[in-house]
């Protein structure tokens, strides 16, 4: 079994083709025979394995020929335009969204000063601008092709944009309530929660189920990065799990922070982040100790 795992690991980054599988089977059986013969000469199974593997030499050069993935990568690298250009529609969209946002800021500032420093009215007048601008910028940002990433599917990006819009709507409505005279914390929460919570949940769901949109060259960079960190985090899966854990932690922390802030005071809400940092350290510690355990059992 050790041999099969070794050979599988050897060809880990290669796309499986019929020829490559054939080749792997051949190597495995030959290695097995070799290990058996070495064991017959009185070597321990570990020694025999190590010797057989060292006799094998570098076979990845052959594997390159048998796996088309490598070739595809090279072609992808050669022909992908490194700097995608922004289409006219997108340029207009970005400018419009930024314009709306700027216009909203100016309008609410004017309202603020002309209405006798009333934050409630100022934020209320900001609302019709920030919601569409925020949603539009989210949509445009996600569907724009960059040097590093392919554009997101437009339907998915639309859901993101809607969720962002809903969250912005909830935040601005409830913050304007906050500055309203004789505001009632329960009323603020009552406005905030139905908008922000579902919005955050939708976004959290989308982020956790996100497919990779990285371009091939970046994937290679990532692979190199993972190799460099191979001794630290066992594999990509663990890294992903870790990322999800701390993502959930911070989303939760921000939720609690907002809740405490609205119900009491921002001073009471800030320590939430201290707890979140501690949680982050705990996750890190757990990952390291798990990794140590894993390497100890090997």
């Amino acid at each position: 079994m050790m041999i099969k795992k070794y050979v599988d690991d050897l060809f880990h980054g290669y796309k499986s083709t019929a020829e490559l599988e054939d080749f792997k089977e051949e190597i495995i059986i030959n290695l097995k025979d070799r290990v058996q013969d070495l064991e017959k000469t009185g070597k321990s199974s570990d020694e025999a394995f190590a010797e057989a593997v060292s006799e094998l030499g570098d076979i990845t050069a052959i594997a390159d020929d048998l796996s088309r993935e490598k070739r595809k990568e090279i072609i992808g690298k050669m022909y992908v335009d490194p700097k995608p250009k922004l289409s006219a529609g997108y340029a207009i969209g970005y400018t419009l969204a930024a314009g709306v946002l700027l216009f909203g800021i100016i309008t609410s500032l004017i309202t603020y000063f002309s209405a006798g420093n009333n934050l409630f009215i100022a934020i209320s007048s900001f609302l019709p601008f920030v919601v569409p601008a925020g949603a539009a910028l989210t949509y445009l940002g996600l569907t724009t092709e960059t040097t590093a990433k392919y554009p997101m599917d437009w339907k998915r990006a639309l859901i993101y944009a809607l969720a962002v819009g809903v969250i912005l709507f909830g935040i601005s409505i409830s913050s304007s309530h906050y500055f309203m005279e004789n505001s009632n914390p329960a009323a603020i929460l009552g406005v905030l929660v139905p908008f922000v919570l579902p919005g955050i949940l939708v976004i959290a769901f989308l982020i956790l189920t996100e497919k990779k949109r990285f371009k091939p060259w970046l994937m290679q960079e990532h692979e190199r990065y993972h190799e460099a960190y191979a001794g630290y985090y066992k594999d990509t899966e663990e890294v992903t799990k870790r990322g999800m854990l701390s993502g959930a932690l911070w989303i939760g922390a921000i939720g609690v922070f907002l809740l405490i802030w609205i119900l009491t005071n921002i001073l009471y809400a800030l320590p939430v982040f201290l707890f979140a940092i501690m949680g982050e350290l705990l996750i890190e510690y757990r990952m390291i100790s798990k990794h140590k355990r894993n390497s100890a059992t090997k």
Binding site: E26, I29, N30, D33, R34, D37, E55, L56, G57, D58, I59, A61, I62
Partner: peptide
């Protein structure tokens, strides 16, 4: 098969030279 070929090369050279299997 592969290992037979490898072994017969080793036998013929009395282990004086080791060809990598690759």
């Amino acid at each position: 098969y592969g290992y037979q070929i490898y072994k017969s090369i080793m036998d013929r050279t009395d282990g004086l030279y080791q060809l990598k299997e690759a």
